[in-house]
């Protein structure tokens, strides 16, 4: 299965390493080398202390559902990917990450439920899309 025809990210010099790590099956968070903040989405400068000593580090890929909603109505979305669960997953490292929760009946989900990352390939070799599924 490929992510398309769902929209794929615009990869730029600042985010390419994040997507490339995903294509290798690694979910990364940005870690500030000065203040220690772990953050998402990736940026080269820390949004707390503004240090430029930021590096991507491998995250556990596990966390819990912070919130979610689900719908049958998403314009232009492939029918086989509906209903769509949009969620924020709070990673064990801290940041809340927007994502999809897959592989579960949406009615069975709950806030606080443990989930782990999995990756869906795209037509680009160096980009995969992280999604989450119940543990």
């Amino acid at each position: 299965m490929s992510w398309e025809p769902r929209p794929t990210p615009d990869v730029n010099p600042e985010t390419a390493a994040f997507w490339a790590a995903a294509s290798e099956g690694r979910f990364t968070v940005s870690r500030c080398g000065d203040c220690g903040l772990a953050f998402h989405y990736p940026r080269t400068r820390c949004p707390d202390c503004f240090s430029d000593r930021v590096e991507l580090e491998d995250a556990s890929g596990e966390g819990e559902i912070y919130s979610y909603s689900f719908t049958e109505q998403v314009g232009g979305w492939p029918e086989e990917a509906l209903p769509l669960v949009l969620a924020y997953v709070e990673l064990d490292e801290g940041p809340r990450v927007m994502t999809n929760v897959v592989g579960a009946d949406p009615e069975s989900l709950s806030v606080g439920q443990r989930v782990e990352v999995e990756f869906v390939d795209t037509e680009a070799d160096d980009v995969s899309i992280p999604v989450f599924t119940p543990v």
Binding site: R6, P9, F70, T71, L84, V97, I129
Partner: peptide, 21 residues
């Protein structure tokens, strides 16, 4: 958007998440 809209985030699902939380 590359970290949000790619997941099919729409206005109503995003506010739905707020309501659920």
């Amino acid at each position: 958007d590359s970290f949000e809209r790619i997941y099919g985030a729409t206005n109503v699902t995003m506010y739905g998440m707020a309501a659920r939380r």
